[in-house]
């Protein structure tokens, strides 16, 4: 389980996170939604220990990662998989080398076993035929799929997704959501997504949190979001420029 408790962050005079609090249940698919610039990706960076909050706690399976020393944090990170917004693939490595990277770093397996795992993960994302290509030679959707294969390489307990479908066409977007659903094992692996693609995440999420103006303004199941009377939630769901969320 992940607990985010009263997390606050300021950049200069601008307070981006103003006391964010929520819980992510173990084994669930939970999604944080909100407008672009609402602080979703910043919060995700805090949850994977890339940034430190000014105040607050982020507790992962009972351990607070805020202020944690790097070696201890790295032990927790080895249980993570992260799919970054544009895949963040290493452009000097081929597709298979990218997927093999975390295995080579942390598993110490013989090379033939590493290759078996790589092929198995690339099979899952449907990219077995593209192992020798470089990130610059594949499409945006394929890069995200390779990123997912790499995130799953160590069979993590938690996978974080930063805008997994941004910049993709509707069909590829659907394929990515199907992959997320298919690779998720209920009760065993926790998926935490950050997205503003409301229609897509409503279909696959167990729980949704909405961040607005640096705070969580709504939290619940997709059904409770659909029936919510909260004007902020309804404006976001409708995609309307008129309402309490101002366009700046």
């Amino acid at each position: 389980m992940i607990q985010v408790d009263d997390v606050r962050k300021k950049f200069g005079d601008q307070e981006v996170l103003k006391g964010v609090t929520f819980e992510v249940k173990k084994g669930s698919i939970s999604t944080l939604i909100g407008r672009s610039g609402a602080g979703k990706s910043i919060l995700l960076r805090h949850m994977i220990g890339l940034d430190e909050p000014d105040k607050g706690h982020i507790v992962i399976d009972g351990k607070d990662i805020v202020g944690m020393k790097t070696p201890e944090l790295n032990k927790i990170r080895r249980r993570f998989g992260v799919l970054f917004q544009d895949g963040a693939l290493f452009d000097s490595m081929s597709v298979s080398e990218n997927v093999a990277f975390p295995l080579r770093e942390h598993r110490g397996l013989p090379e033939n076993e590493i290759q078996d795992v790589v092929m198995q993960k690339l099979d899952v994302v449907g990219l077995r035929r593209h192992t020798q290509k470089y990130p610059s030679e594949i499409s945006g959707g394929m890069r995200k799929r390779v990123g997912l294969a790499r995130a799953l390489a160590l069979d993590p307990d938690i996978v974080f997704f930063d805008e997994p479908t941004s910049g993709l066409d509707p069909i590829t977007r659907g394929a990515i959501y199907r992959l997320i659903e298919n690779t998720h094992v209920d009760g065993k692996i926790t998926y935490f997504l950050v997205s503003h693609d409301i229609s897509g995440v409503m279909a696959i999420s167990d729980e949704i949190m909405m961040i607005h103006d640096g705070r969580i303004v709504a939290c619940g199941t997709p059904d409770s979001f659909r029936t919510s009377s909260d004007q902020v939630v309804q404006q976001f769901l409708m995609g309307s420029p008129d309402g309490p969320i101002s366009i700046d």
Binding site: R45, R77, V82, D86, A88, L89, D91, E105
Partner: peptide
């Protein structure tokens, strides 16, 4: 610099690689 801007350095950190 390009690795920093395309989150490749963040990816290393998230994979517990210094």
């Amino acid at each position: 610099g390009s690795m920093r801007n395309t989150q490749q350095i963040d990816a290393l950190l998230s994979m517990a690689v210094a």
